[in-house]
Design a protein around this nucleic acid. Structure first.
Lengths: 282, 282
DNA sequence: TCCATTGTGGAATATTTATTTCATTTGTGC
DNA sequence: GCACAAATGAAATAAATATTCCACAATGGA
């Protein structure tokens, strides 16, 4: 049954090549399945043998034969490859891994790590790009564009993000106040926010208590809070006026910041744009 | 079983809202499933009741109850909604642009900006991944791994990067000193570096004079300097022992930080690894 | 503190789904 | 046109997966 000489590909791209290569030599029904599989990979990933067989106008048993022909244990085994493709619809791991093999032992260690972080970053970008809701983003920008002063809250892991925003806001001449005092007066600073201002808070699990407190303080004072966080159940989402969700991929125990960073670059520019459009100048 | 008053949502977004809305009123295990479902939608789409139950640390029957609670006929019915979400997930640029066209005028503005920053980030990652030299990276890690204290230099645009490194080094218990004093004693701090220490400096064009000076000071004191910069002609490259080149793509006047950030995540982990491998403990 | 109600784990059951088997058909070389 | 091998369809079987059921635990009100 299984074609001993050929190992079944475990990634979609190799499988694709294999199918294209074999296609000509395949009997009628199997060729029909081959065509269908390449034309409707999503169907293969989600469908059942019966539903796919029906859609491709063959018998379920033909699907199993097709899988065997390519060296898989069965149809389910083949199907997994199609599913993987959707799971990490992102980076072609192969190219990367192949590249890694060509360099020396000792160097490979570091390169592999870098690779891990690069692909986590890539994954984050892709996921975020697919999940962002333009309406929420638009409303968030609108809130911040109308603020007199924007108070910036983020600690620990999120701090680099807000540090960048403080920089960008500065360059764009947008009045802002970073709540990160070396002398411990953060609560007092957040206490200065008043109606007409707005706050931008960033916090990911495990949420820094200080961030939550400061955001809450400002929310209580009637200051609209825009939050960037990683879950609908984040305490930050609870006290915010609008919140943007980002789920970053992680690697080696550190979560990527790339998607968040892209968002943090967007906001200042979008706010500056909105102000110009609305004729708001501060 | 089925809650007659509520119709089960047939699209992911509605379902998502429904889950968020109901979450508070749900019993413990069901709430646990709710959280897991929103945090790992892909798992729900592809997994089996058993595998998901295991991952979410509940019983399969709980999944069925959860589905019933929301008005579905069973878990499989609920799962379909999660699958649909992936089926028509648009990933290609064209689809994305189409999507942009279908959303409102005002919202498109912000979405387009975000899209620009996201793709600049992606480009940076790709370019960097292709251009990095594993040998240089390896040597840089080696220098830093042997340092007693690592002095960190970066201002302005590069500051978020070094801020992250200070965080990561801290978590990994790697002694470091961030040269960013609120009271203006940066020159004095960089003067403290001595043989046995090392410096890590980041600067991109236009190079901040302070960064260059401080790096130079330490280099003069015989401290090895690892630099991250954007050109072979950077003044930072001139005074460094090893330097890593990163050319970030830019958009709307702001350069991406994603590739640099990935590198900045890699270094601390790589250094910690190298120390363990070499038996160096500080 | 007790009872009633709701929630939960785990095993039993039902259902769906993949796989194998086998009789029949189709194609190919002689 | 015959014999043989390969391919195919359809049904039987095996495996997997979802669902239900029930005993027990936790919770909240009297």
């Amino acid at each position: 049954m299984t074609d001993g000489s050929t190992l079944a590909p475990r990634d979609f791209e190799s499988l694709r090549s294999l199918i294209i290569e074999r296609r000509g030599a395949l009997p009628r029904r199997l060729a029909q399945v081959a065509k269908y599989a390449l034309d409707h990979p999503d169907e293969i990933a989600f469908g059942t043998a019966a539903s796919i067989a029906n859609a491709a106008d063959v018998q379920p048993s033909t699907l199993v034969r097709f899988a065997h022909q390519l060296g898989y244990e069965g149809f389910s085994d083949l199907q997994k490859v199609f599913q993987e493709r959707l799971r990490d619809r992102t980076t072609s791991y192969e190219d990367r891994l192949k590249a890694l093999k060509t360099i020396g032992e000792d160097q490979a260690e570091e390169a592999a790590l870098l690779d891990g972080f690069l692909s986590a970053a890539q994954r984050s970008l892709q996921d975020f790009s697919a999940s962002i809701d333009p309406g929420t983003l638009s409303r968030a920008v609108n809130i911040l564009a109308r603020a007199d002063t924007i108070y910036l809250v983020a600690k620990r892991r999120s701090y680099p993000l807000i540090a960048h925003m403080a920089y960008a806001f500065g360059k764009l001449r947008i009045r802002n106040r970073l709540i990160a005092s070396p002398n411990g007066i953060d609560p007092e600073i957040s206490g200065m926010a008043r109606k007409g201002d707005a706050a931008l808070a960033i916090s990911f699990s495990p949420y820094a208590a200080d961030s939550i407190n400061q955001a809450q303080t400002m929310a209580d004072a009637g200051v609209p809070v825009v939050a960037i966080t990683d879950s609908a159940f984040s305490p930050l989402a609870a006290c915010s006026t609008e919140w943007l969700e980002i789920a970053e991929a992680d690697y080696a125990g550190f979560r990527s910041l790339s998607a968040s960073m892209a968002l943090c670059m967007t906001l200042p520019v979008a706010i500056a744009d909105a102000r110009q459009r609305l004729g708001l100048e501060y």
